[in-house]
Design a protein around this nucleic acid. Structure first.
Lengths: 239, 239
DNA sequence: CTTTTTTGTTGCCTCGGATTAACAAAAAGC
DNA sequence: GCTTTTTGTTAATCCGAGGCAACAAAAAAG
């Protein structure tokens, strides 16, 4: 299997053979997590960073009254906690939403490699930056979009992201998450997610049967969700 | 005036004299923006990054129907668009909320310096990371907190951040923003912000007269806003 | 296979927050 | 100084989304 991080980075920037080799060496140490288990817990001081190779993971924050909010959904190719290299405490859980295969890399190894290959270090920094850009898009959607538009935006974003790592085809992709998870991503109640989903299906722009999302009207959905992909930085750029 | 970025970084990590000198050289090119003017516009391809030296700035996103959402409030010491070093398009405006003095640094200069001083590069990466952590905290507040708690959280966050750069004292600080700005940060209507603010004042935990916020009951406010400062990474850590 | 648990769906009712409007207070402009 | 614009405040009304409950469907466990 091709390393999805390599796919991800090579779509965005020039990656040299040496850098690819270094990345693959860094991500040899695989580990599996069953759906529902926590890879990292709030308060941890992780000594290594986690790259998702397969499956879906979520950054989950729990409030005192038990409410849960998911601040990011991670797909193959994502470093879910690269910030742990620099921040020393996890401020949230990372949970496997489906069965996950990940690669663990010890922080000292990442430091050593990025010092030897500074451009690779900048690429990892880039991935932090894209993370922040996605967060901003979520903030805007949470604060000022209708639930219907928000959901449209989310489905657009997931399509583009999954497409980059080769997990989408023909405007369709697998998204095996529950409406409970979706509610905690959109900041809505489960019941309302269900109703909003039906409204969205009723527009005919999207079908979502079982785990499969199919976008029937990309331009319509894009407009409804006011989705601009610029923040995902899809364009290749010179180093 | 001490460079607030130096203050900011030195509170979080060891910064050598050489690094401080390099930072100060990078931030010599000052520029002023009047309140209400845009420093950067959505769609721009900036060639330099902006460090706030004095004043408050906001990252503002505008929706098609004219709605505005602010995804971050920037204070002295913040690099408001460091991501522009890596992403090539701005996905939002940066607007001066008050009169601002900023320092502009050309991207090539930042690259040159961080290649010479890799640890300084990591510190700038750290500031991206903290940015992302603040975004996550905002996402949680937007999605799952009551307006009252959200506002408490916001005021706690601002206190800690301003304190780090020496702009708070005795649980008080200047926050010369309008309720309109606040509404666009909390994702509420102006009217509701006003009511929530009155509710908050009624608890006696906070007074906000003119531009001055005074936290009368830090622990109470902290609890109400479920504010944990871990994500701001206040602890120094070894390189 | 049956049982149990989780997830999805619908209806009813409530309530928080939006909307609109009107006015007061403050700030900015002249 | 006065006027105009912006910001803050309060009230009345409305509606979207939440809460709760009941049940169906699907998945997991036995």
């Amino acid at each position: 299997m091709t390393n999805p991080l390599v796919l991800f980075l090579s779509r965005r920037d020039d990656v040299s053979a040496e850098e690819i080799a270094a990345l693959e060496t860094l991500t040899l140490n695989h580990q599996d997590f069953a759906a529902g288990t926590a890879m990292i817990r709030q308060g941890d001081r992780p000594q290594s960073s986690i790259l998702v190779l397969d499956g879906l993971a979520a950054r989950a924050h729990y409030l005192a009254d038990g409410k849960r909010m998911i601040s990011a959904l991670h797909i193959p190719g994502d470093y879910v906690d690269l910030h742990s290299l620099l921040l020393d405490r996890m401020d949230h859980d990372v949970t496997a939403l489906t069965d996950c295969r990940v690669a663990l890399t010890a922080h000292p190894d990442i430091r050593r490699v990025t010092e030897r290959l500074p451009h690779l270090g900048r690429l990892l920094w880039l991935s932090t930056t894209i993370d922040a850009a996605m967060h901003r898009a979520w903030i805007v959607a949470l604060g000022r979009m209708s639930p219907l538009s928000h959901m449209a935006h989310f489905l657009c974003e997931m399509y583009i992201r999954l497409d980059i790592v080769g997990q989408a085809a023909d405007h369709s992709y697998r998204l095996p998450i529950t409406q409970i998870d979706l509610a905690d991503m959109l900041g809505l109640s489960v019941v309302h997610v269900n109703r909003t989903l039906q409204d969205l299906r009723a527009t005919g722009m999207v079908s979502w049967v079982g785990p499969t999302v199919s976008i029937k009207d990309w331009n319509g959905l894009r407009e409804l969700g006011q989705f601009e992909d610029a923040y995902l930085n899809l364009n290749k750029r010179p180093r």
